[in-house]
């Protein structure tokens, strides 16, 4: 088996195991109803985490996405309230804005050679600020077209509902999986994340790849914003604070290396589902504080980083991945 897929397989194993344990305690948890809700409740997180996966694979980070989602909600609310535009037109306009916003951040990162952490942190403040400027209050989002989206679903066997927004999330995962793991663009992203200098000397247009990656993340954040607005029927500038960190956690739990160049997009979906499952368990239990979600996720994150380190070491013992192991030992030596 490809050792690179091992973190993904382990993630899937953990998900199945956790679901199994929850099922022993609450048999009702194993139903398409619960699964449908799991997908719907986490649709926006899944979409934004997939965009984050691409950014992390390219060796970067995008801290602006939570704020962009909040901006999206406020933007949609204000536009529907103050203009006669049809929601679909508003959505297209919004996606255009967030994509351009991502492209601009990518351009700054590449052209000014600034660290993505700083640039997207600035982007986070700007997007959040723009949301405040549009409105400080929570704006209800109502429109027949949006109600139609909210009530569109496919009835799964067992009466579970696969809602339109959950389907949109699954579609995004599938499309980005193809883009990253089956297209020439995806190979470039991996190349840049592996070693940007070498990639450049091999003829990869690092600038264009970087800009495109942040553009894609901006698009995903906008799409997540649309889904979140539809899901909550409201736009609020204080919403989704810290969602970028949830997304990063999902990416890491999904088996993508934070240093870039190695990972698997569907892993992120499983990461999101693990986080959603913990939440669902807490709801079923009824006595636990929902803050337990955070604690469990924190422990999982630790576990995964340790697991990945262990895997790398295991591989180096067997002789494979020797260079990487040696690089680590060199760091150890320098730190000694």
């Amino acid at each position: 088996m490809n050792a690179r897929l091992l973190p993904f397989v382990v993630t899937c194993g953990i998900f199945v195991l956790a679901y199994g344990l929850a099922w022993l305690q609450f048999p009702a948890i194993l139903s398409t109803r619960v699964i449908g809700n799991l997908l719907t409740d986490n649709a926006y997180l899944g979409i934004v985490a997939v965009g984050m996966t691409v950014v992390i694979l390219s060796g970067g980070i995008d801290l602006s996405v939570g704020a962009v989602i909040a901006f999206s909600g406020v933007f949609i609310g204000v536009m529907l309230r103050d203009t006669g535009l049809h929601p679909y037109a508003v959505f297209v306009l919004l996606l255009l804005i967030t994509t351009l916003f991502g492209l601009a951040m990518g351009a700054v990162i590449h052209l000014l050679e600034m660290p993505p952490f700083i640039v997207t942190l600035a982007g986070m403040f700007m997007a959040r600020g723009a949301a405040y400027v549009l409105s400080i209050d929570s704006i209800p989002i109502r429109h027949p077209a949006i109600e139609a989206i909210q009530s569109a679903y496919w009835l799964m066997p067992g009466k579970g509902r696969l809602t339109l927004i959950a389907g949109l999330m699954l579609l995004t995962v599938a499309a980005v999986t193809l883009l990253i793991h089956r297209s020439p663009f995806g190979t470039r992203v991996m190349a840049v994340g592996g070693d940007a200098r070498t990639a450049r000397l091999l003829g990869v247009d690092v600038g264009r790849t970087t800009v495109a990656v942040y553009g894609l993340s901006g698009f995903c954040a906008g799409l997540a914003g649309v889904v979140f607005a539809v899901y909550t029927s409201a736009g609020y500038s204080l919403a989704t604070v810290g969602t970028e960190l949830d997304a990063i956690a999902a990416v890491v739990i999904g088996g993508t290396l934070l240093t870039g160049g190695s990972g698997f997009v569907p892993g992120t979906l499983v990461g999101v589902l693990i986080m959603g499952l913990i939440q669902t368990y807490i709801v079923f239990d009824g006595t636990l504080s929902s803050w337990w979600t955070k604690i469990v996720i924190g422990m999982l994150l630790f576990g995964f980083v340790a697991l990945q380190k262990g895997l790398v070491q295991l591989r180096s013992r067997k002789g494979g991945g020797r260079r990487r192991a040696r690089r680590q030992s060199a760091q150890g030596r320098a730190a000694a």
Partner: peptide
């Protein structure tokens, strides 16, 4: 500066 160790041999050759 050789190639990218995180890509497959084929991906490196055909990049």
């Amino acid at each position: 500066v050789n190639l990218l160790p995180n890509l497959t041999v084929a991906e490196n050759l055909m990049l």
